[in-house]
């Protein structure tokens, strides 16, 4: 079953066209990797899915579980099960992680007509932080304030595990991670993927992450278009030949 269907998507930022006709369908149980050189529009695609304001959709359609995604506000998208792991998670001074997470959990529950989470249940959700090797002290700290790059990314994955979305979009989650942190983050994502009703879109510049989060499909984005799609081996080929190879031989292969 298709979780998300992106059809001929065009998006502008400040008048410049960044996405120039994207088509992509992601079904339940699938992980799709989006790769591409800097400035190709990878992060824009992630942001558009989450509903960031700066991007103007000029053409195309996105269906999420059969519903028109572009009609939904960002918070509604989140409540409906879209989670974006940010490339640069923001700091919110004075608001502790635990409070933030509980507010988010309750907002999502409210959206589904459910009661607020009881403290006992929330405590057991918090246990998921062990999956990303975080300890309790994180919870009482302000959101991302003074966190190292690796801690921020692990916190994103922890939030994802707690909020339990349907579609996870990971925006360059590997950037700035050392190999140990990378493995931890991947473990968390793989835990999420174990459920066949979920799907993930992994946006990355490097193949490295895909050794640990093995995708079902790999798409190469160049200049706002998917120029090539294939299986996981396409990532390896890119790694050895570089993006220049794709740019020289546009769309010669398709999945």
């Amino acid at each position: 079953m298709a979780i998300i269907e992106i059809k001929n998507l065009h998006a502008n930022v400040e008048g410049n066209e960044i996405l120039k006709g994207i088509d992509l369908t992601v079904n339940a149980g699938e992980t799709h990797a989006i790769m591409g050189p800097n400035g190709s529009g990878k992060s824009t695609l992630a942001s558009v899915l989450a509903g960031r304001e700066e991007y103007e959709i000029t053409e195309g359609q996105i269906l999420y579980n059969g519903k028109d995604l572009l009609e939904m506000d960002p918070d509604v998208r989140a409540c409906e099960g879209i989670f974006l792991a940010f490339q640069y998670p923001v700091e919110i001074p004075g608001v502790n992680n635990s409070y933030f997470l509980r507010t988010a959990v309750n907002a999502i529950r409210k959206h589904h007509g459910e009661d607020e989470i009881d403290p006992g249940e929330f405590l057991s959700l918090r246990e998921k932080m062990k999956l990303v090797h975080m300890d309790d002290r994180f919870l009482s700290r302000s959101i991302n304030e003074g966190f190292s790059g690796g801690e921020k990314k692990r916190n994103e994955i922890f939030q994802m595990l707690v909020l339990d979305p349907t579609l996870a979009v990971l925006d360059e989650t590997d950037s700035g991670l050392d190999i140990d942190a990378l493995k931890i983050v991947a473990e968390g994502v793989n835990e999420f993927r174990r459920d066949p009703s979920k799907a993930a879109i992994v946006v990355t510049h490097y193949q490295r992450l895909l050794n640990y989060i093995v995708p079902d499909f790999v798409h190469v984005l160049v200049d706002g278009k998917i120029v090539q799609s294939g299986g996981k081996e396409l990532a390896l080929e890119l790694e050895s030949k570089g993006y220049g190879w794709i740019e020289r031989e546009p769309a010669s292969v398709s999945a």
């Binding site: 304001e53 918070d75 989140a78 409070y99 933030f100 507010t103 907002a107």
Partner: peptide, 29 residues
């Protein structure tokens, strides 16, 4: 920050609640 608000939105929190949370965090001390 609109970034801060968007971050909260992306976790399911409405803008009004997000602002209140950010401002209260700012005033915590």
């Amino acid at each position: 920050g609109e970034d801060q608000i968007f971050y909260c939105n992306q976790r399911g929190i409405e803008t009004e609640d997000a602002v209140s949370m950010i401002v209260n965090g700012f005033c915590k001390e």
